[in-house]
Simulated assay, not measured.
Amino acid sequence: MGTGTGRKFLFVLGSARRDGNTEQLARLAAEQLGDVEQRWLWLGDVPLADYRDVRYPVSERPEPTGNEELLLDATLEATDIVIASPTYWYSVSSSTKRYLDHWSNWERVPGFVEAMAGKHLWAVTALAEEPHQAGALLDALERAAVYLKMTWRGGLVGVGNRPGDVLSDTTALTTAKTFFTA
């Protein structure tokens, strides 16, 4: 991947702390993208309000504003969306879940569903246990991709409990070198 590919990666960082194992693993994998455009948004910097289902009636649906509008625009501008969330209790973090929940309301934004079709959805996660424990997280994201007719590109899973531990996971580090280019 290089200049002229037209690809734009959005990294949605859902960790409760900056530069945690998940983010470190995502950044190592992203090094392989070269000069492909990348945008990194830590959800701690752009928090969303708790999700309220306001899909119906459509006439009462407020337009996204503030952080919600920023995240919606970033999502729509990307060709590739990377959900970088630690595995917490076998699922994504609460801030990541809130971001994904807002996709339900965004389905009523004109053009959102059509724009999501064909985008690529990726996952990067780290957890303190065995990699297979991330299965529910990966399954949920794959189902979201299928629902919106996105292309599911899979998950990069690393093991690390304390900050920096993932850098000792040689399997994850090897996979990171080709994750976005395979």
Rank of each mutant, 00 (worst) to 15 (best):
R39V: 13
W89S: 04
K177R: 15
V36I: 14
L10M: 02
A140I: 10
G14M: 10
T5Y: 01
W40S: 08
L28D: 06
Y51A: 01
A123M: 07
D101P: 05
P110L: 02
T75R: 08
W89I: 05
S95D: 11
A49M: 11
E31T: 10
E114H: 08
A140L: 14
L13D: 01
L167P: 00
E130Y: 03
V46N: 12
L121G: 00
G155M: 03
D101E: 11
V146F: 10
D53N: 15
L43D: 03
E23T: 13
Y51I: 02
D101L: 06
V157W: 05
R108G: 08
K119W: 03
E130I: 01
S168N: 14
L72W: 10
D80N: 12
L28H: 12
G6T: 07
R98P: 01
D139W: 15
V146T: 11
G2F: 07
A136H: 15
D19R: 13
L43K: 06
Y147S: 10
S15K: 03
T79M: 08
A117E: 01
R39C: 11
G4C: 00
K97V: 00
F9V: 09
L43N: 01
M150V: 12
M150I: 07
G154H: 05
L148Y: 15
K8H: 12
G118M: 00
K177Y: 08
R153F: 13
R153M: 13
G118R: 05
G14W: 08
E129T: 13
M150D: 07
D169M: 04
R98D: 11
A26N: 06
L127V: 04
D35F: 08
A134Q: 05
Y88N: 10
L28W: 04
G34H: 08
L156I: 06
M150Y: 02
M116I: 03
W152P: 00
G20W: 07
Q24L: 15
G44H: 10
G158E: 01
A117F: 05
E69Y: 11
E68S: 08
T125R: 03
P131F: 04
A30K: 01
G4S: 03
D80H: 14
L141N: 02
L13W: 01
Y88D: 12
K8N: 08
A144K: 12
L71T: 09
R7P: 00
T96Y: 06
A134E: 04
S59C: 10
S15C: 01
M150T: 04
E142Y: 13
Y99R: 04
T3A: 11
A182I: 10
V109N: 09
D35N: 14
R18Y: 15
S95I: 15
